[in-house]
């Protein structure tokens, strides 16, 4: 398996909406914690450290 970086979700606008809506009415600290939980939940679902590592590498590439 390899990290899928091609479009993989059909209702992309909806998912984007859901993720950003999560932070509605949250302080920055609350947001950071909610994001952390989200990452952990999804990482556990993926369950493959090689794939997660690929995603981490990409996430660390741009605009520090």
């Amino acid at each position: 398996m390899k990290l899928n970086t091609k479009p993989n979700i059909r209702d992309h606008d909806n998912i984007y909406d859901m993720i950003t809506d999560l932070h509605h009415n949250m302080t920055d600290d609350e947001s950071m914690k909610a994001n952390a939980k989200l990452v952990l939940l999804l990482a556990n679902h993926i369950g493959d450290s090689a794939i997660i590592k690929e995603a981490i590498d990409i996430a660390s590439q741009f605009g520090k």
Binding site: D29, M32, K33, A34, N35, A36, K37, V39, L40, L41
Partner: peptide, 12 residues
């Protein structure tokens, strides 16, 4: 960020 992950883990 590490604190957010730590507390996130404990909350979950």
């Amino acid at each position: 960020a590490s604190l957010a992950f730590r507390d996130g883990v404990l909350e979950l």
